[in-house]
């Protein structure tokens, strides 16, 4: 695969996941279980939108066809989105939302932690920023998972059911395809990824 095409797809993939999850998180706005959590979820949604913007903007410049972040984000059909499936799962309940944040957040944290060392300076920079944000998201979600697991019988059952359901979507997080393989071999300037 052409390295530039792979790089474009890789960036759009990260941005798509962030954008879709951000929309899900912000669906809670005005519906959170308590005010603080309502605010927290929109705050995290905002971080994710910010991350998506950075990666869409870079993807657009890599593509070099004069498109903008908005063209990529809002002028594609739903089947053209390449987000991780876990990001688009409906909110269901608060526990489910926290479990989804936790699982996505952990992968995202590890991915950005690795990408901070990317030879591609833009990716490294965007990742350095995103890494700090994901640290907060994972911490927030993990504390709720403990609390709900140790809480009442109902909260315990719900968070357990959430894990059982969402676990099925974690396989995808470890898949490597042509895009990844191609970038591991090359980056545009010829150095190793």
């Amino acid at each position: 695969m052409d390295t530039n095409i792979a790089l474009y797809k890789y960036c759009v993939r990260i941005a798509d996941t962030s954008l879709i999850l951000a929309q899900r998180m912000c669906e809670w706005c005005g519906h959170g279980p308590v005010l603080e959590e309502d605010i927290a979820m929109s705050n995290m949604g905002l971080d994710l939108i910010g991350q998506a913007r950075g990666f869409y903007t870079y993807a657009a410049s890599v593509e070099g066809k004069g498109r903008t972040e908005d063209d990529i984000a809002y002028f594609r059909n739903e089947r053209e989105f390449t987000n991780r499936c876990i990001a688009e799962q409906p909110n269901t309940d608060f526990g489910y939302t926290m479990m989804r944040s936790f699982l996505h957040g952990c992968l995202s944290y590890l991915q950005f932690r690795a990408l901070v060392n990317s030879k591609d300076e833009t990716i490294a920079g965007l990742s350095e920023k995103a890494l700090k944000e994901m640290t907060y998201h994972v911490r927030h979600a993990s504390e709720w998972i403990i609390r709900l697991g140790d809480g009442t019988e109902v909260s315990h059952e719900k968070i357990k059911a959430a894990l059982e359901n969402l676990w099925e979507f974690t396989d995808e997080l470890f898949e490597m395809d042509q895009v990844d393989q191609s970038l591991i071999k090359n980056v545009p300037n010829g150095t190793r990824w």
Partner: peptide, 8 residues
Amino acid sequence: TPTYSGCP
């Protein structure tokens, strides 16, 4: 440089 990626 932004404080947070999505800082409005």
